[in-house]
Each structure stands twice: as structure tokens, then as C-alpha cells.
């Protein structure tokens, strides 16, 4: 069988990405993400939250080199921002008892610092879990699972098409900027010049995108998008293995019990 025949044949069975993490059912991953971040949030210890952040890195690493690189780039930048601002602001401005240093309204306190640290870890672990979920779960898998549950085709279309639209919008914006510079509007140079050139095109950019949407809708109409029956799928995921379901239940129980235990008088 040549490669094209292999490609076509691959649709006859459930599609596998070839990576353990990526092949997990989207709902499994959603469940885990929620369980982990809720648990760590409610349990409140620094180390549980830190553990979640570390788990995020590990899971992304397991999901493939490309993915891991993207996650590290994006998440590290975001995490750093949160750490810097939350710890910094809280340390300097939050009132506390143990004062280390003072200058005007800035008062560096131990309580402020630890509060900031706690907040930063909380925000970062929530952020990390959500980001990781989206990184290791391709949108088309999410949409497939959602459709399988009975969501209308329009919903999945909107989600998936929006993502593509954003890419298209970027290309459009570039072309429009080129055409403006071809008319003598200065687009290179300092930020102010560039902003001056960019802002007037925002309106036609979006208008153009909307006009394009009308045609897209017509095109989708011609492909029976408004049909009332349950659609079949060319791209299908495997049935969730029993092991995954068991693991989810197990994880949920562990989290619930831990949280209840913590809040027991």
C-alpha cells in the first residue's frame, strides 16, 4: 500500500496520535485537569500547588517535543508575570505584622510575601492546568467528543472556524497594511507611526471578516450543515478504555476525600 492508500485506510479505524498523553480521551484529560487544580486549590498547601505546576510541565513533556516547547514558552512567560506582580505587590503593600523595611507607603512584610507567594502559586497552578489541557488536547478531539455527546454541528463549527479565522485575520491584516503603505501611509518606524497606520484598518478588517463569514455560511449550507440528523464522523477517536475511566474515578475520589479530610473539624 502506498502512503496515500495508508492515509485513507487510517480513517477506517479510530485515529491515534501515537502519543500516550494525546491519545487519552478529552474528557479524561478534562476531568484530571479539574480534579488536580481544584484539589490543590482547596487543599491550600504551598507544596500541593507547586506539585501541580511541576505535573503540568511533566505532562507536557510527555506529550511530545514540539508541544513541550510551546508550553514552556507560553507558560513560563505567563507564570513569571504572575509571580513577579503578585509577590511584588503583596510584599510591598499588604499590611502585616513582621515589618522588614519601610519607605513611604511601601512596607515589606513577611506576611505580605507569603500571601503573595500563596496567591501566585494558586493562580499559576490554575493557569497551568487549563493551559496544559488545551495544549495536550487538540481542538478537533474536543469537538469530536462534544459532538458525540449531542452538541449541534454549529457549535463545533464555530469553535474550530474561529481558530482558523484568527490565522486568516492575521494574514489579512498584513495584506491590508501592505496596501496602506503602498498608498503612502507610513507603516514602518516607531510604535506611534505604526499604530497610526494600523488603527484605521481595524474597522474594514473586521468588516471584511464578517462579510466573508456570510459567504462561508452559504458554503456550509450547501454541505447540509442545517441537517437535523445526527452526523457521522470521518475522524473518530477510540472508545475510552476502561482503565482510563477507572483512573478518573479513582483520582476524583482521592481528591474529594483529601479535601473533605482537610476541612473536617
Amino acid at each position: 500500500m502506498n502512503s496515500k492508500e495508508k492515509f485513507i485506510n487510517s480513517f477506517r479505524n479510530a485515529k491515534l496520535h501515537g502519543n500516550f498523553i494525546l491519545d487519552l480521551n478529552p474528557f479524561t484529560k478534562l476531568n484530571c485537569a479539574f480534579a488536580i487544580f481544584l484539589g490543590a486549590a482547596l487543599l491550600g498547601h504551598y507544596w500541593t500547588r507547586l506539585a501541580v505546576i511541576i505535573i503540568c510541565y511533566v505532562i507536557n513533556a510527555l506529550s511530545g517535543k514540539e508541544n513541550f516547547k510551546r508550553f514552556v514558552k507560553l507558560y513560563s512567560f505567563v507564570a513569571f508575570l504572575f509571580f513577579f506582580f503578585l509577590i511584588g505587590l503583596n510584599t510591598c503593600f499588604r499590611p502585616g505584622e513582621t515589618l522588614y523595611w519601610e519607605w513611604g507607603i511601601i512596607g515589606i512584610t513577611k506576611e505580605g510575601f507569603f500571601y503573595g507567594l500563596s496567591m501566585a502559586l494558586l493562580i499559576n497552578e490554575i493557569c497551568g492546568s487549563i493551559m496544559s489541557f488545551y495544549m495536550v488536547t487538540p481542538m478537533k478531539d474536543i469537538m469530536y467528543s462534544v459532538e458525540r455527546l449531542g452538541a449541534p454541528r454549529a457549535a463545533s463549527y464555530i469553535m474550530l472556524a474561529s481558530m482558523q479565522s484568527i490565522i486568516d485575520l492575521g494574514k489579512s491584516a498584513n495584506t491590508i497594511m501592505e496596501s496602506q503603505s503602498a498608498r503612502g501611509v507610513e507603516t514602518s518606524g516607531n510604535l506611534k507611526t505604526r499604530a497610526k497606520a494600523f488603527v484605521p484598518i481595524l474597522f474594514p478588517l473586521f468588516l471584511g471578516a464578517i462579510a466573508g463569514t456570510e459567504e462561508k455560511t452559504v458554503a456550509m449550507e450547501t454541505r447540509a450543515f442545517s441537517a437535523n440528523r445526527k452526523p457521522t464522523h470521518m475522524y473518530e477517536l477510540r472508545k475510552t478504555p476502561a482503565l482510563e475511566k477507572v483512573f478518573c474515578v479513582f483520582l476524583d475520589l482521592v481528591v474529594i476525600i483529601s479535601v473533605v479530610w482537610r476541612f473536617l473539624p
Binding site: T175, E178, S181, A182, R183, G184, V185, E186
Partner: peptide, 15 residues
Amino acid sequence: STAQISGMVGYVFQN
């Protein structure tokens, strides 16, 4: 820059 040259050469885009 392109804007400076546009004074000499006008360009009408396809779309």
C-alpha cells in the same frame, strides 16, 4: 520605505 516610493509608483491591489 514603501510609503516614500509610493509617491512615484501607485499600486492597485487585486482584491
